[in-house]
Amino acid sequence: MINTTDTNTRPSSGILTMMGLNRRQRTIITTAVIGILLLSIILGGLLLSNERITTNLEARNQAPSFSHPFGTDWLGRDMLTRTIKGLTLSIFVGLIAAAISTIIALVLGIAAATMGNRVDTIVTWLVDLFMSIPHLVALILIAVALGGGMRGVVIGVALTHWPSLTRVVRGEVLQLRSTEYVQISRRMGKSRWWIAAQHIVPHLIPQMLVGLVLLFSHAILHEASITFLGFGLSPHQPAIGIILSESMRYLSVGMWWLAFFPGLSLLIIVRLFDILGDNLRKLMDPYNAHS
């Protein structure tokens, strides 16, 4: 996983600086703008009618134009509509998978750090096990075992993204456990559950939220990859991976727009989620907020 903690670059920070806003206010505004943008894409994908992606042979193989900004494919389907619908589907798959992964990471991470040495050994061993084969090979294996399709992709992505976050949670809890206020609580006779609920979980919630958003972008990329390879969603569904793998047959005749725009849209979405995660981390980290 790429470490993105050290970024100080924010989009449009120049204009916002000129408006006399401080760093925290700028971060809040960028985060809100990104959130609205992502929401509008999801809404767009849900609300757009299927009319523009039905076969329309009169308008096939058209290069990008005003009425079809992303061009049309060999069946005359509007690529912009297909792309937005594909992105919506990807975002949903990513959201479900990332949420499941985050929950697994939370449970295993806390268990490893609080339930003694034996559990810790088992959890670290499990993390090592999942990290021991290439991510994509694990995804293929799980997708094949479940017979492909939407279910295979979601379960595959969900079951392979928790190890790195589990390590983070485990480290965090171990650190929290040795803090003075937790030690004092224990000496004062508070139960394990009380300490976990009052002292540990509140610290983990922001971590989890950030972890969820950052896992999300990985999950979307892996969903697209596995679908591109042919293990994922069925060809009838408008997924970005399907669009890109279909486009390969038409690249040699020069229909570049079939691959260019859908891929670029995916890249922008993933990048937006990354920035969103980074901003959330900055907003939630009290040491960083006012600097």
């Binding site: 790429i2 990859s225 890109l244 891929g263 890249l267 990048r271």
Partner: peptide, 26 residues
């Protein structure tokens, strides 16, 4: 930094497709 962070969110196979379009087709 911008280049690296953008690359980290780029699907590998899409980069391959772009290279194919530019260097092999065009």
């Amino acid at each position: 930094k911008w280049y690296c962070l953008t690359l980290a969110s780029t699907p590998t196979f899409w980069v391959g497709l772009l290279l194919l379009i530019v260097f092999a087709v065009w």
